[in-house]
């Protein structure tokens, strides 16, 4: 009995995962081909006009530019899968080494932010939906509308002006080193976390509110009211199970957004994360690093989106137990 119940969900999940993998593959291809389209020869572009033919040849060999494109793509992709992204053009260090702890830092920043923002956004969104059209709801709606209209760096600078310049509580530069303890790290990332949390919470809260209001308008909620059930029971037992799927979707999408949102905040606070590395490398045209960090960002983003899809399929009662 369980088995034939399972069937369509498994098929749906397989479809989504397949599409996710396809997306990742296309992304790797786009990143690779994109870089190939660089106007002029990469070696000339990087080494400049003054380079001798020998250094150019050595450079081309180093980057395997003398091989045909499809071979290079396979090399690059198989290397990337094993975690080998070649060497940085700027300082000759292995890209993996450069990226490793920076990616960890970015995930730390995003992770701490998510821990604050997700519960806050879901609770506030739920409350705004339950107390719709009250002063509380209007206040929250207006303030979140303002926050999502602000550029992230605006929020960041306001916070710096307030908590770092006017009241010198927190550092305006979030520099962390590998040997710092958790407490020190948390102190260092306080302002960037707060910035991200404000922006993400605003988005997530609005979407949560909308999702729950949508559910509360359903006929079966009216029926629950007419059965004389208590308000709390209606919300927890009747609205929540149906709201789970859309709300989880909202959370995962915002986490994906968060991963990308770190780029700007990292630049503002000079935080040694992957985002800052990407921006620097784009400016320096350090191609292997750009490729690698782009691929990592894109993969994280795609995986989170995939997770959103999978979770919302699993949470949908209609899909879970088909006819």
């Amino acid at each position: 009995m369980q088995q034939w119940h399972f069937h369509p969900v498994v098929r749906l999940l397989a479809q989504r995962i397949g599409l996710g993998l396809l997306t990742l593959w296309v992304i790797s291809l786009l990143i690779f081909v994109g870089i190939q389209l660089l106007p002029g020869d990469l070696a000339d572009a990087v080494l400049g006009q003054s380079a001798t033919p020998e250094t150019v040849a050595a450079f081309r060999h180093e980057l395997k530019l003398d091989l045909p494109p499809h071979i290079r793509y396979l090399h690059w992709l198989s290397g990337a899968v094993e975690g080998d992204f070649g060497r940085s053009l700027a300082n000759q260090r292995p890209v993996a080494e450069l990226i490793g702890w920076r990616f960890g830092n970015s995930l730390f920043l995003a992770g701490v932010t998510a821990l604050i923002a997700v519960p806050l956004a879901v609770v506030l969104g739920l409350m705004a939906a339950l107390y719709r059209n009250t002063l509380f709801d209007k206040l929250i709606s207006t303030s979140t509308l303002s926050v999502i209209s602000f550029p992230e760096f605006f929020v960041a600078y306001i916070l710096i002006a307030l908590f770092s310049v006017q009241l010198p509580f927190f550092p305006s530069i979030a520099s962390i080193t590998p040997d710092m303890g958790l407490g020190q790290k948390l102190y260092a990332v306080f302002l960037p976390c707060l910035t991200l949390a404000l922006v993400v919470t605003a988005h997530m809260m609005r979407q949560t509110r909308a999702a729950i209001i949508n559910i509360l308008a359903s006929a079966y909620i009216e029926m629950a009211n007419l059965k004389g059930l208590k308000r709390m029971r209606i919300v927890v037992l009747h609205a929540f199970p149906n709201a789970l799927s859309p709300v989880i979707n909202v959370i995962a999408l915002n986490l994906a957004y968060l991963v990308v949102g770190v780029v700007i905040v990292e630049v503002v606070f000079v935080y040694p994360g992957l985002g800052q590395l990407l921006v620097d490398s784009v400016a320096k045209r350090d191609i292997p690093v750009v490729q690698a960090s782009g691929l990592i960002f894109a993969t994280t983003y795609v995986l989170l989106n995939l997770l959103a899809d999978i979770l919302s399929i699993l949470c949908n009662p209609r899909l879970r137990s088909p006819r």
Binding site: G34, V260, L278, F297, A298
Partner: peptide, 13 residues
């Protein structure tokens, strides 16, 4: 499925 900002950064590079 591609994050816009990252995509734009790479293309612009």
């Amino acid at each position: 499925a591609f994050p816009t900002l990252i995509f734009a950064l790479m293309i612009l590079s």
